[in-house]
């Protein structure tokens, strides 16, 4: 197990957002987290990344407990995330946004940057190349010098993922990566995600409401409702599960 959650409970005031939940994600899997709005999916991400501290339970990453670590430390251990509500660095260029992801790989000190010593140039050049490469993968290299906030919504989502990838993660948490994309763009994105997964040897935990995307991407899904598990298994089985249909999918045929 790359990621293991044991008996996680999360309360906000009196409200129980996650209720004694346990599950595990295996290396190399694409694991889907689905469920109605407000079921606790994003909250679970926030617990894994250290943004929230769970009321009860343990999170283990590669068998080590994460509890108590600051979010930035957790990133350095190899867990990166994207935000559901797109949170790019708005005043900065797309390239700079991705370069921020490389922050901890730029191996020069404050004084080396002030004095412009060789290592500064060495790493800046290398990381700029790496960043451009990632942008090319997502088909947004032409926006490298554009201000991140002036991209369209769908392209901003791609920058979010590119930036997370730059932190060199082993586990990538994607919160609704396909939101704001049309079926063709979603299809392209699936391909990109599959490619980077193989190439970087990633494990992926993703939240998505686009069932076609989930079905096509995920090895396994967990369905949450009011913070509790109502289904775990193959996506193709989830789609026909009675409880899942009742709580989450409904009988509308729109998607």
């Amino acid at each position: 197990m790359v990621l293991e959650l044991q008996n996680i409970t999360m309360q906000f005031g009196g409200v129980v957002a996650i209720d004694n939940l346990s599950f595990g994600v295996e290396a190399g899997q694409i694991y889907g987290l689905i469920g109605p709005n407000g079921a606790g999916k994003t909250t679970l991400f926030n617990i894994v990344t250290g943004n929230y501290i769970q009321t009860k339970g343990k999170v283990k990453f590669n068998h080590e407990e994460l509890s108590g670590l600051k979010p930035n430390m957790i990133v350095q251990r190899g867990i990166a995330r994207t935000f559901q509500n797109i949170r790019l660095f708005k005043s900065m260029s797309v390239l700079d946004n991705v370069l921020i992801g490389f922050h901890n790989q730029a191996n020069y000190t404050y004084f080396e940057s002030i004095l412009r010593l060789p290592r500064y140039f060495l790493y800046e050049k290398k990381l700029k190349n790496d960043a451009m490469e990632i942008l090319e993968r997502f088909g947004i290299a032409k926006y490298a010098n554009t201000n991140a906030s002036s991209l369209s919504y769908g392209n901003q989502r791609k920058v979010e993922i590119a930036r997370a990838l730059a932190t060199n993660p082993k586990l990538l948490l994607l919160d609704e990566p396909a939101a704001g994309m049309n079926p063709n763009e979603t299809e392209d994105l699936s391909q990109i995600i599959k490619n980077i997964k193989d190439e970087y040897g990633l494990t992926i935990l993703l939240i998505e409401h686009d069932m076609k995307f989930v079905n096509n991407m995920c090895d396994k899904v967990l369905v949450l409702d009011y913070g509790e598990e109502i289904f775990e298994g193959k996506p193709s089985e989830a789609i026909v599960d009675e409880k899942v249909v009742a709580a989450y999918l409904g009988d509308f045929k729109h998607a």
Partner: peptide, 12 residues
């Protein structure tokens, strides 16, 4: 721009 997002990039 966004302190939470900066933290999520591994920045102390």
């Amino acid at each position: 721009d966004d302190e939470d997002a900066a933290t999520a990039m591994g920045i102390n």
